[in-house]
Nucleic acid binder design. Structure first.
Length: 723
RNA sequence: GCCGACUUGGCUCAGUGGUAGAGCACUCCCUUCACACGGGAGGGGUCACUGGUUCGAAUCCAGUAGUCGGCACCA
């Protein structure tokens, strides 16, 4: 076993970390062969262990040493006689081809020792000082002091062949970094064969647990299980569950559930319990059922029957072997079923340079500092938004952006609350069959978002859910819907129309807050309680009588029948027109305070949409007049643009327009279209593409080409008109 | 040594066959009565490299390079 001389306890493989490769030495020692003048040279990085050597091994095929096999060696410094043995484990090409064998202090030597029936001589105490087996000269010395002394003594005896620099990675205690000592020791082990096979069968037959992401965790988990060895579960620590094994005076062992049971088994009162405790991960391995009132049998009752197995375990990569695999194995063995179906493995948060955070490097971040600076909700949203399964570098700026988002939610809701007289949360307010484009559009977007968020969550794509909610709330709701609804809800004139508009916007916020709640719990609860009309009536049916809280409301599922493609298309046209007009304003340096006249010509369908949204278009484009025409009638001195579907717009700029600059602007737009058109035309002229690509894909491109051509033609006419 | 992942605009990252995306940063304009932690308009990427499959590749395959990780070994 691996022994930590500082903690004085055994460690399992998973508690061992390779220490950064230290400069080691490979020491070559000469062992005199009895009855001859010959020596056999062995190499070691731990010379002090020669005091516990009980053989030297060579490869049976190695011609250099075959004549010595069976010979005896007079082991220097000890006066002991040991044998030269043959074992195929030895690699003739490494070092001298002869290996000193210390069965009590090396796992491979132990194996060889077992095969050849060698004596196992422990030469150290539990604090890694040498014991009496090391001889009077060495007894009491620390292992590293003893190492130096062995080299010195060999040198004095003329038996030191050479010392080479040798880079080696040493196993160290994960907690205290002390270099571990492999040591023969009596410990409790769990036989893993049966539990391992149960876990492997579960994976093979049912693909459980289902890892997310599946690559690489499924494979790593499976191959770890396949190579699983017995588990050392005893620890010489004071912290933990004491091992339920008792000894009588003669050293007979009684394993039992309780001391009373052990006494009954032993037939005596005079028992002493094993002082060791269980590996903390052994206790944790039982967690899925030991926390549910497990009675030691496979018969489930109470909480265990109700809650076991569960759906999903969310955890980090480094816990998969330590905990996840062991929960699966113990649950299969002791309850006879899986502990959970899915395992979501999150990425690791790295520092801003992409390095793992560690105490020694001091490059960690204190979550409390982040909470203090940006808020708990922003931090939570950042982590959820980064939960792709991949590691990610921590950047305060990212948290800051979600802090800003939290602020946006706060301000948007505050604004609606300031204008909420006469309104209250009312889901029936969204059931209208005829409404404005904006109302139909936001209802469609809200339901589409809810459906997409649910899908993302069911696939454990937390970052996608975060993105959907962020853009719905900020872009759709704040940037467009509030702006479009502003006049109505801030109208000085009280009445049913204003109340209805206010009720709709408050209701949309209520639903949005519920969607955001798992990601930003504090902010959403605070705001939700402030909304007029929220009460325990909105709690989930099972919690109707409880206090009103967003925590007990139902998560919005979204309603596919509320998705309104035509409303989204119409709104798209309005947004495009406003954006084009704003683009002209910005590029032509029109002062924000100046009102423009906006000419627009388009197909009949779009003209109706524009007419219906005239006041919003005027407001958001900062226009004083909207002229909807069959063909734009604007003067030559106008800035112009084209719309999807062949529409055109123009903004008269008498006295303001720089014809050269406008021509440049239009030429730039024309260039972009031209480049795209050339690429698409190339695709269409490829007969292979037209024949082999799906017809709808080909049609899509033809449509796009005709759209581009329409827009190009309009732009060209406008350009010529400028000259 | 074996296995795996990653390499996308200045930065941090989404995006698994059909016109390259986000946040931050950057440029210009705006103290318009929810929010300057804000609003509007922009610029910026031959998706590491090479080859292959395909009508079509950031996306599939092979190889190369770099980065990171897991496992094994280390007399």
């Amino acid at each position: 076993v691996n022994w930590c001389p500082r903690d004085k306890t055994v460690l399992s493989d998973l508690e061992v970390k390779e220490e950064t490769k230290k400069d080691g030495k490979l020491v070559h020692l000469r062992y005199p062969i009895k009855g001859t003048d010959a020596v056999i040279t062995v190499a070691t990085t731990r010379p002090e262990t020669m005091l516990g050597d009980t053989a030297v091994a060579v490869n049976p095929e190695d011609e250099r040493y075959s004549k010595f096999i069976g010979s005896e060696i007079e082991l220097p410094l000890t006066g002991r006689t040991i044998k030269i043995i043959a074992d195929s484990y030895v690699d003739s090409s490494f070092g001298t081809g002869a290996v000193k064998i210390t069965p009590a202090h090396d796992p491979n030597d132990y194996e060889i020792g077992m095969r050849h029936g060698l004596e196992q001589l422990v030469i150290m105490n539990d604090d890694a000082t040498m014991n009496s087996n090391a001889g009077p000269e060495f007894e009491g010395l620390d292992r590293f002091k003893a190492r130096e002394k062995v080299i010195e003594r060999f040198d004095e005896l003329g038996l030191l062949d050479k010392v080479e620099d040798y880079e080696i990675a040493l196993p160290a205690c994960e907690r205290c970094k002390t270099i571990l000592e492999p040591m023969l020791s009596e410990q409790w082990f769990v036989k893993m064969d049966e539990m391992r096979d149960l876990a492997l069968e579960l994976m093979r037959d049912e693909s459980i647990p289902r890892f997310s992401p599946e690559i690489p965790h499924k494979k790593v988990y499976t191959s770890w299980l396949e190579n699983l060895k017995d588990w050392t579960i005893s620890r010489q620590l004071w912290w933990g569950h004491q091992i339920p094994a008792w000894y009588d005076r003669d050293g007979n062992i009684f394993v039992a559930r309780s001391e009373a049971e052990a006494k009954k088994k032993a037939g005596t009162e005079e028992l002493t319990q094993d002082e060791d405790v269980l590996d903390t991960w052994f206790s944790s391995a039982l967690w899925s059922f030991s926390t549910m009132g497990w009675d030691g049998s496979k018969d489930k009752s109470g909480d265990l029957a109700a809650f076991h197995p569960t759906n999903v375990l969310v955890t980090g990569r480094d816990i998969i072997f330590l905990w996840v695999s062991r929960m699966v194995m113990t649950s299969m063995k002791f309850v006879g079923e899986k502990p959970f179906s899915d395992v979501v493995v999150t990425g690791t948060v790295l520092d801003k340079n992409g390095q793992r955070m560690s105490k020694t490097k001091g490059n960690g971040i204190d979550p409390l500092d982040v909470f203090e600076k940006y808020g708990v909700d922003a931090t939570r949203m950042t982590l959820a938004g980064s939960a792709t399964g991949a590691d990610f570098a921590w950047r305060d700026e990212r948290v800051e952006s979600f802090r800003n988002f939290a602020n946006k939610i706060w301000n948007a809701t505050r604004f609606c609350l300031l204008n909420s007289d006469g309104a209250q949360v009312d889901h029936s307010s969204l059931l209208f069959s005829e409404g404005s484009v904006a109302d139909r559009w936001i209802r469609s977007r809200l339901n589409r978002t809810a459906i997409e968020v649910n899908r993302a969550l069911s696939e454990y794509q937390f970052h996608e859910a975060v993105q959907l909610l962020y853009h719905f709330f900020w872009d759709d709701f704040c940037d467009w819907y509030i702006e479009l609804a502003k006049d109505e809800i801030t109208s000085a004139e009280a009445g049913p129309a204003r109340d209805a508009a206010r009720t709709r916007i408050i209701t949309i916020i209520e639903i949005a807050l519920r969607m955001l709640h798992p990601f930003m719990p504090y902010l959403t609860e605070e705001l939700w309680l402030k909304l007029p009309g929220t009460s325990n009536e909105l709690n989930h049916a099972a919690y109707r009588s409880a206090t009103a809280t967003i925590m007990l409301t139902e998560f919005p599922n979204g309603n596919a029948s509320m998705i309104d493609e035509s409303a989204e298309a119409e709104m798209g046209a309005v947004i495009e027109l406003i954006s084009r007009a704003r683009n002209i304003r910005a590029e032509m340096n029109i002062k924000p305070s100046d009102r423009i006249t906006l000419h627009v010509a388009s197909g009949p369908q779009q003209k109706m949409v524009f007419a219906a949204n005239e006041s919003q278009i005027l407001k958001l484009a900062k226009a004083s007049e909207l002229k909807i025409e069959d063909a734009v009638s604007a003067p030559k001195a106008s800035a112009r643009g084209v719309l999807t579907g062949g529409g055109e717009l123009a903004v008269p700029l008498e006295g303001l327009i720089d014809f050269g600059k406008e021509a440049e602007r239009l030429a730039g737009q024309l260039d972009k279209l031209k480049t795209e058109n050339e690429r698409l035309a190339g695709q269409l002229s490829n007969s292979n593409f037209v024949e082999r690509a799906p017809a709808e894909k080909v049609q899509e491109i033809r449509d796009r080409v005709s759209e581009i051509e329409t827009q190009m033609a309009a732009l060209k006419l406008n350009l010529e008109a400028l000259r």
